[in-house]
Amino acid sequence: MSAVLFDAPGPVAVRRHRIIAAATVLGLIAVAVAVIWKLAVEDQFTAEIWEPFVTPSIIEFLWVGLRNTLIAAAVAIVIAVVFGIVFGVGKLSEHGWLRWPSWTVVEFFRAVPLLMLILFIWAMQGYPTNSLVPLIIGLVLYNGAVLAEVFRAGINAVPTGQSEAAFAIGMRKNQVMRIILLPQAVKIMLPAIISQCIVALKDTSLGFYILAPVLTSQGRQIWNAFDNKFATAIVLAVIYIVLNLLLTWLATWVERRISTPGGGHVTIVAGQVQADASAGAGPVV
């Protein structure tokens, strides 16, 4: 927090801050009371609405969805990293015949809505139900394209003296890339890659639209059976928030562990790599 933005408050400011703080607290309490009152009036605190979420068979059912969600996200991100290295290095190539196709592929998959891509793949495969494959392919293409940009930025963030020194001792182009640039770039990029994992994890929820057996689809079956849409949506949201906070925490931990003074920094905002590395990991969509 940049405390330097404001001075140590004087007596008038202190009073003003207290008034604002009190108003905020009152506002928050009012919102909480209104929500609880509304839920109580609408009979949302009954056992039949919340009971499914403590029933072992339903927990088992949600667990299947959670497992599929995690599998889809993990498989997709691993393949996407490979995709990203190939196309990121391709975009940096000195050969036009390699650079331009890489550029086209990366820009195309970043600009197309992921959901439409997934629907297209789903249609091309003949609308399979209960299949994670269209979802995973879509996630690989989109996240791979974003990661390609991350890799390019990461490689560019390695000080030029490194590759100059490597060339000076007689390394070849691919040796410089493989032995000198990529290992250092990965270190710079690791936090960005983890925050892209959060994006991939959130995007697995799109399996909802193609009947893939992920968390959101399982949720639909639960609310169809118990008619508790509101409660189910809240439970799904809580599961996703907890998972993402764990990943966020991991990203911060990794960043602290590996960050070197004066080292570069890559931030992704909404699938676009930001050249400007302002404080902290940027928002991710």
Binding site: K38, L39, V41, E42, Q44, I198, K202, D203, S205, L206, F208, Y209, T216, G219, W223, K229, F230, T232, A233, I234, L236, A237, Y240, I241, N244, L245, T248, P283, V284
Partner: peptide, 22 residues
Amino acid sequence: IFRNTPLVVLIILTYYGLPEIG
């Protein structure tokens, strides 16, 4: 809260969930 919830889940909440509570 809102950055870590998938948009689909938020739409489910407002489109199906909120009408359920009036």
